[in-house]
Design a protein around this nucleic acid. Structure first.
Lengths: 211, 211
DNA sequence: CGGTAGGAAGTAATAAGATGA
DNA sequence: ATCATCTTATTACTTCCTACC
């Protein structure tokens, strides 16, 4: 993408011979000689006769234009005329150059945005995967904890059953909690649900409401 | 992005008057009349004389070309020549049309990919957020479960302490477990770490190693 | 109102390097 | 190595649209 766009500076311009108002004029296809290396059968083409077509601003001209473009992508007519006379170009050409340059800039920017977004996206995919495994792991651990609690309760027998002497008796297993998307739909059966579940510090659980 | 590109079909082509080999020839800028609506000062430009510039293939021609492009984006010379004679165009023009069409297709595709990726990315961000809150919630619940276990253990006094009679004694709190990124760095102090933590079915925990 | 200036999008064609047969 | 074709970049132009006088 950058192999041949800053190298054409030395002998590319056949039209250095035309330092006139309109910079580069390529020879017609069948004017006298064909300096083209390829395109051997380009007869006709220019409406049947030797028509000059200008091509390629010189590197100097492009440099100055590029410099001005770097400062400001828009082009007021004053700057346009000044640039045109500095470069020996038609003001029209300067305007066209800026328009094309803006278009190029836009598509390049799109490409940059794309690759930026892409890497960001890939990071997010990795993150998401990590979070999913973490969720699985935590759920597994919760199940183990529940088993432990069950065992301890069964062992404790006719104890106070720890009704609600401390805030730690709050074990919330809301219906949509363990369900969905992880193939663990049946696991909530393992839990005994104490049915008394509100933790004052869990207001953020309301964030689920937008799903 | 789609407001004015399929509407130019009725009276745009001044050059319907030239059904010749080279389809459309726009009148020169100062040849005889200026059918242009603007661009009053487009003198010179065509190297200073009345130069015809062909423009705009007819809609019929574009239709056929588009049809062929839909079948296959590449153009073998056989098909090129056939198309050229069918359309009354120079084979060169057909080749150019295909080249430009491919370039247009690529940039359009990039744009599509971009918006697709963008929506996908936004979905992922939402998912990630959801998972993060879920992780927080699960950690909170784990803490509560641990508290519960502690309470039960303290109450049970000199019991068997449930050494390892069942696989449920596996409660793993590895060092990097509750740390990082969630502002809960201090919470693992709440847990008592049994220091004997391996669950045979948790090999996927190794997925953390790449973080 | 009309006419002009200018921007954005699309299009045709050219230029030059790379590639494959 | 020559030739055709591809890709990428570039120039110029057309059409549509908006704003301004």
């Amino acid at each position: 993408m950058s192999s041949h766009q800053e190298v054409d500076d030395q002998m590319v311009l056949i039209s250095q011979y035309y330092p006139g108002i309109y910079t580069q004029l390529m020879p017609a296809e069948q004017g006298a000689a064909k300096p083209r290396r390829r395109r051997k059968k380009n007869k006709g083409e220019g409406s049947g006769n030797g028509v000059m077509r200008k091509r390629k601003l010189s590197q100097e001209q492009v440099n100055l234009l590029e410099l001005n473009f770097g400062n400001e992508h828009k082009l007021e007519s004053e700057r346009k005329d000044r640039l045109a006379s500095e470069l020996g170009l038609d003001p029209r050409q300067v305007a066209v150059w800026f328009q094309n340059r803006r278009a190029r800039w836009r598509s390049k920017k799109l490409e940059e945005e794309y690759s930026k977004l892409k890497s960001e996206h890939e990071n997010n995919v990795v993150e998401k995967c990590r979070l999913e495994t973490e969720v699985l792991k935590l759920k597994e651990q919760l199940i183990e904890a529940e088993k432990e609690i069950q065992r301890l309760l069964e062992r404790g027998g006719s104890d106070g059953l720890s009704s609600n002497t401390s805030p730690s008796s709050s074990f919330s297993m809301e219906p949509p909690f363990l369900g969905g998307e992880f193939g663990m739909e049946g696991l909530e059966k393992v839990f005994y649900v104490p049915e008394s579940s509100y933790i004052p510090e869990m207001e953020w659980a309301g964030l689920y409401n937008y799903m």
